[in-house]
Computed example of a mutant assay.
Amino acid sequence: MVAAVAVGTVLIADEDEGDRTTSAPPATATATTAASGLAAVPSGDAGLPSGAPSALPSLLARPIIRPEQAFPSTSVRLKDGSRYARVDLSTTVDCARGVSPELARLVEQGEGCSRSTAALFTDTERRSQVTVTVLSFERVEDASRVFTMTSTDPVAYQVDSLDPPAEAGLPTVPPGSAGVSRRAMTVRSVVFANGRWSDGTKTGEAELTARTEGLLQRVDDTVATYEEGRN
């Protein structure tokens, strides 16, 4: 099964603060809400994705992916040879925390979201910070709805970026810094990646995009392998 991936660059300015229940030292999360305020959240089933496998019922019988399964390594090497360190890991069963108000209301529709797990990565030079978040759902329809809406309006329906914990030795990205956002869907999860430069610079968009997409693909492959029963 090929995971769906949303493309297109989204520049995000971080403003509001939120929090998460963490399995590692607590981290502060920052998010942007739409300037126009809260928009109405669509309801109703999105239906099954066109590429849903025939073995879907048996795949959904598997437990929701655990944090250590979604992010098994503290050191990651991508296919292009670049290396990243995981400096924070955060997880909660309250998926409405750490997301924009619009997305919070969306994830609570249907049977809701079962778990949100986020990890913060930085490169060997510690120039970039990429947060990858996995939202896992009981039903494929609910995951599909969230993926569709976040792809349609990624500014309103967005996931927070983690700020690094003090022990990571990384600077907190300055408020208002631009970033790159990407998302993908597996069997029952939506994977988000937000990339920002540690110093908040607005240049180097192509390089930041490549780093963000690389980590998104790595985590997406890991989650898809588990959810499709290939491990």
Rank of each mutant, 00 (worst) to 15 (best):
E167S: 10
R218T: 04
V180N: 03
G176Y: 05
S181K: 13
G169R: 06
A206K: 14
V191G: 02
R183K: 15
S189L: 10
P164L: 15
A168W: 12
R211G: 01
F192I: 13
N194V: 02
A206I: 12
L208W: 01
T209V: 11
E207W: 06
E205R: 02
L215Y: 02
D220P: 02
P171V: 03
G200N: 14
M185P: 14
S189M: 06
P171C: 07
L170A: 05
G176D: 11
V190M: 07
P164K: 14
M185S: 13
A184P: 07
D220K: 05
V187I: 08
L170G: 15
L208N: 03
R196Y: 06
G179M: 00
E213A: 11
T186G: 04
S198R: 04
G176M: 13
R188H: 09
S181D: 00
A166N: 07
G204N: 15
G179L: 04
W197P: 06
E213T: 12
T203R: 15
T212M: 00
V190I: 11
G195W: 04
D163F: 01
K202E: 11
A184L: 09
L162A: 00
D163G: 13
G169K: 10
R218G: 01
R182Y: 13
S198E: 06
P175L: 11
G214L: 01
V173N: 00
V190C: 09
D163H: 10
D163R: 09
L215C: 11
E205T: 14
T203V: 15
S198F: 14
R188Q: 04
T172I: 08
E205P: 02
P171I: 00
G200F: 09
G169P: 10
F192V: 08
P174E: 09
P174R: 04
E205D: 09
T209G: 15
L216Q: 06
L216T: 00
L208G: 12
D220T: 13
P171T: 01
E167K: 06
A184W: 13
V180S: 01
M185I: 10
N194I: 01
A184S: 11
L162M: 00
T209L: 04
R183E: 10
A184N: 15
A206V: 09
R188D: 06
G214R: 08
L170W: 04
L215R: 00
R188S: 13
Q217C: 03
A193F: 07
L208P: 14
D199N: 14
T212H: 01
V190T: 14
E207M: 09
R211I: 07
K202C: 00
T186C: 08
A193L: 12
D220W: 06
K202W: 02
P171L: 04
L208K: 11
S177R: 12
S181L: 03
V180L: 05
N194G: 01
T172Q: 11
P171E: 02
R182K: 05
L208D: 11
T203K: 14
S177W: 00
G176K: 15
L216M: 15
G204K: 14
L170S: 06
P175N: 13
